[in-house]
């Protein structure tokens, strides 16, 4: 492997990892606070991408403002979903919320096919060009997506560590009952966490939708990746989601380039299995069943 190919593969691994992380942190945030696996997370990612598509191409709204609008809209959608569908299931068997989120997958993706049609669409990118280093190219588009992903992850981390709302979220994720006794409004915390997780999915959908192309069925693949990452990193752990995403990015990039895409998939799942055998809670997870 020459230096150019190695650098290109490594750059792809890092950018892929950061993009995966952006999808996964929303999922892990929702689990951490509410103890539910939001399987329809990828569908919100898809809705975010379509919101950007219609805002930019149909309404002519500038790209970055459209991204913000998409995130805000999906924040509201997520909050409403939590209040209407998931709040009544708090404290009940996890299978109930599993059934609801699985149902949401079909409702949102089928609804998407009806509303948006079956045609694959592309979102014009606001970026052009890139920088070359050691014989490898990093486009400004991928660089920007990576920087935004990194900034959002760090921002979320800081938000959880240093703000009152962030501390409330952490308190609820540690023990909702005790947090409630300490005066934390758990209901409010829940819908904010759900909304925030959904907004992050929307931003991921916007950024990756520009990079790739969008179709109403795109959510399932995103959920699969995010779920793999979250399981490997540890359910509810943001550092775990970041590390898990980077590992998967490295496996996908180097595995595909050196071997092939199917073997990369096999390696990815094998690493998850090995991780869970050695550390059943994932890399940074804690026990949720005790």
């Amino acid at each position: 492997m020459d230096i150019g190919l190695f650098t290109q593969t490594a750059l792809t691994a890092v950018t892929l990892g950061l993009m995966y992380a952006l999808i996964a942190i929303g999922l892990t945030l929702i689990f951490g606070v509410m103890r539910i696996v939001q399987y329809a997370h990828g569908e919100l990612y898809m809705l975010g991408a379509y919101a950007l598509y219609y805002a930019t191409t149909q309404l002519g709204i500038p790209y970055w403002f459209s991204v913000i609008l998409s995130a805000a809209a999906l924040f509201v959608v997520g909050a409403v979903l939590q209040v209407v569908l998931f709040r009544p299931l708090i404290g009940k068997n996890m299978l109930y919320s599993l059934a609801v989120s699985m149902g949401l997958i079909f409702i949102i993706s089928s609804g998407g096919l009806l509303m948006f049609g079956t045609v694959v669409r592309g979102i014009p990118s606001p970026f052009d060009g890139g920088i070359t280093m050691l014989g490898a190219l990093l486009t400004y588009e991928r660089l920007t997506i990576s920087l935004i992903s990194g900034a959002l992850i760090i921002g979320l981390w800081q938000f959880l560590a240093h703000t009152k709302m962030g501390m409330s979220l952490r308190a609820v994720s540690e023990d909702a009952e005790v947090a409630s006794l300490q005066g934390v409004n758990t209901k409010r915390t829940h819908w904010i966490a759900f909304g925030l997780g959904s907004a992050l999915a929307a931003i991921a959908g916007c950024l990756m939708g520009t990079l790739l192309s969008i179709v109403p069925t795109m959510g399932f693949g995103a959920t699969m990746k995010a779920f793999m990452i979250v399981i490997m990193g540890g359910l509810g752990s943001i550092p775990g989601a970041l590390i898990g995403a980077m590992i998967l990015g490295v496996i996908d990039s180097f595995g595909t380039t050196l071997l092939n895409a199917d073997i990369a998939y096999i390696i990815g799942f094998s690493v998850i299995f090995i991780t869970l055998v050695i550390r059943p809670t994932g890399l940074f997870g804690q026990r949720w069943d005790g």
């Binding site: 792809t12 892929l16 993009m19 996908d252 595909t256 050196l258």
Partner: peptide, 11 residues
């Protein structure tokens, strides 16, 4: 399910 074709195209 692939989302990014950089690795395949690089190869």
């Amino acid at each position: 399910e692939d989302t990014d074709f950089y690795p395949i195209v690089t190869k």
